[in-house]
Design a binder for these strands. Structure first.
Length: 556
RNA sequence: UGGGGCGUGGCCAAGCGGUAAGGCGCGGGGCUUUGGACCCCGUAUACGAAGGUUCGAAUCCUUCCGCCCCAGCCA
């Protein structure tokens, strides 16, 4: 695997600019607004921005786009830094905030006023909206558009001084109310917000808009390629307008790419915030959330996310990536790196009737067949075992290779056993299997060469340790959540299943929070922080590819 | 009906006038003490459509069709 980006148009542009000597080095930036947690869609942008910088020996800044104190919080700032680092990227010394530039931005605003390129508008938000026109008709000039430079300056300074309440006035760029591009119809540059800012505290009561702050921030930092998503394409003329009319120290260019969409997933900070606030999930880091913190808790490796970003590419076409691609990238990395252990999620008791009572023995189990140097660990065996309920069927359908009455299967690393008797309770539920083992098959190979089609995982009842295992499925039951109009209605009621009475082999009992493991034949799991002193809690990151499940669904 | 974008297999995505990469998925086979992994093979006579230019077009031109974004003092 390589973190190298596959070819894409942005990389090509950067490469060409560098080749042509347009820039000596590439500078990008990842500019999150600290109004929520980062999700896998942001990961695409992070990988792009940091990846391009890395590939061409440039640098990538982390800059908080903190121009709206109403929505931004320190908690989000902290989480964003943690998540970017966790993903594997380092902004070095280059941590910035749009708010670092508030003084400069303010000065430049005065300059635009003095040059007759900005004015204070006393209209209400409603009036401004009403006079902006529509998609097909131009807008009308504000009655305040012709104010003198002196008056504008005075008013703007008084806005800053706090003389007016929120919403009383705004500073607008004087561009063109008749422009077919609505963003150019005298966009708002500053609004009055008597709000405390996470970084600047109470210093300001006027705050710059995104459009007024972003390009200039890029220019101040020497950003060469400002990469953003498609919806900002219409803003580019405005981005350029400010840079052309201000004495900025550098000239960045904006390029747009399509944001990530993932099937069965919603990537909208607004909606994710709603899920958290309404308690539909346990928090931003709920393992079902597409947030980086949720994916981390679920056990998703950052390497897998980077691989995912690499494989989906970067383009301008709006698309929906198949969730299976994400799962693939996780499995691919986990398979190569994670230790194997055995666990039984839904236990079915098995008694080996011909095994010497009270006897115990140990087998050496491979830690990771993909890693020759990984070694082995001991697995204890005794006559009372648990196997997976799914691994037994009293009346096996075609293609079911596992245990059934009279059938012989292999217990991984142990023996071949044959099911001799099925014990049921009063309600007819199978509660126990009585089996015999073949002592000659120790280790799992028969001297006569016979080899069962199925190998089952198991744990020794006397040695197993209890664990809670949490199984996750898509948060949404629809591949296209909200297509029918109601996102909440598409929430998958079975997105989480908690198995409180699972058993794990002793070799898995020492795992620390965050450690990952493959439970053989089941999937990849990760120890959740909810673990207690005497009981581990595992989150299932992703299942193994399951051919039998595929066969089953085809049979239905 | 204004402006800005985008249309290549089920899902992503290369391609930039020379005769359709790759990945995911799917199907088949091999191997196998994880129905895992791994390894083979198959999976668009075709690039939204129709015309045109050219020896030759997914790539150039024209028209048409479809989808997305924009009327926050959000980003």
């Amino acid at each position: 695997m390589s973190d190298e980006l596959s070819g894409n148009f942005i990389r090509d542009i950067v490469a060409e600019d560098l080749r042509a000597g347009k820039h000596e080095t590439v500078v990008t930036r990842f500019p999150p607004e600290p109004n929520g947690y980062l999700h896998v869609g942001h990961a695409k942008s992070i990988c792009l921005n940091f990846g391009v910088a890395q590939e061409f020996g440039g640098r990538c800044h982390l800059r908080f786009d903190d121009t709206n104190p109403l929505k931004e919080e320190q908690e989000y700032i902290d989480s964003i830094k943690e998540d970017v680092r966790w993903l594997g990227f380092d902004w070095g010394e280059h941590l910035y905030n749009a708010s670092d530039y508030f003084d400069q931005l303010y000065e430049w605003a005065e300059l635009l006023i003095r040059n007759g390129r900005a004015y204070v508008d006393d209209q209400s938000a409603d009036q401004i909206r009403e006079s902006r026109g529509t998609l097909t008709e131009g807008g009308r000039d504000s009655p305040y558009r012709g104010r003198s430079g002196e008056e504008n300056l005075d008013l703007f300074r008084r806005m800053r001084a706090g003389e007016f309440p929120d919403g009383a006035r705004v500073l607008r760029a004087k561009i063109d109310m008749a422009s077919p591009n609505i963003n150019l119809r005298d966009p708002v540059m500053y609004r009055i917000l008597h709000a405390r800012h996470p970084m600047t505290g109470d210093k300001w009561c006027i705050y710059p808009s995104y459009d007024y702050a972003h390009g200039q921030s890029d220019a101040i930092e020497g950003v060469t390629h400002s990469l953003c998503t498609l919806e900002f394409e219409d803003h580019r003329p405005l981005y350029d307008w400010f840079l052309e009319h201000l004495p900025v120290p550098s000239r960045p260019r904006q390029y747009e790419f399509a944001r990530l969409n993932l099937s069965y997933t919603v990537l909208s900070k607004r909606f994710l915030l709603q899920l958290v606030k309404e308690g539909r999930v346990r928090g931003w880091d709920d393992p079902r959330m597409p947030t980086l913190s949720g994916m981390r808790r679920r056990g998703f490796p950052p390497e897998g996310i980077r691989e995912f970003a690499r494989m989906i590419g970067v383009a301008k076409r709006e698309s929906v990536v198949d969730y299976a691609a994400l799962e693939h990238s996780a499995r691919d990395y986990l398979n190569r790196t994670v230790i194997r252990r055995m666990a039984v999620l839904r236990p079915l008791k098995v008694v080996i009737t011909n095994y010497p009572e009270g006897q115990t023995e140990e087998f050496a189990a491979v830690d990771n067949p993909e890693d020759p140097g990984a070694g082995t660990h001991p697995v204890p065996f005794s006559p009372i075992l648990y196997i997976e309920r799914d691994d037994f069927m009293e009346e096996p359908p075609k293609k079911f290779y596992r245990l059934a009455p009279g059938r012989e299967v292999r217990l991984r690393y142990a023996y071949l056993i044959t099911c001799r008797e099925v014990v049921k309770d009063a309600s007819g539920q199978v509660v126990e299997l009585r089996c015999t083992y073949d002592p000659a098959t120790r280790g799992g190979t028969a001297p006569d060469g016979r080899s069962p089609k199925a190998t089952l995982h198991w744990v020794s009842a006397a040695h197993a340790r209890p664990a809670e295992v949490r199984l996750y499925e898509h948060l949404f039951k629809s591949p296209e959540p909200g297509a029918a109009g109601d996102l909440l209605a598409d929430l998958n009621p079975r997105s989480e299943e908690v198995l409180a009475r699972a058993w794990i082999e002793p070799g898995a009992a020492g795992l620390a929070v965050g450690e990952r493991v493959q439970f053989e034949r089941l999937g990849y799991f990760c120890v959740d922080p909810d673990r207690s002193a005497d009981r581990l809690v595992f989150n299932r990151t992703v299942t193994l590819r399951d051919t039998w499940a595929k066969v089953q669904s085809r049979q239905k």
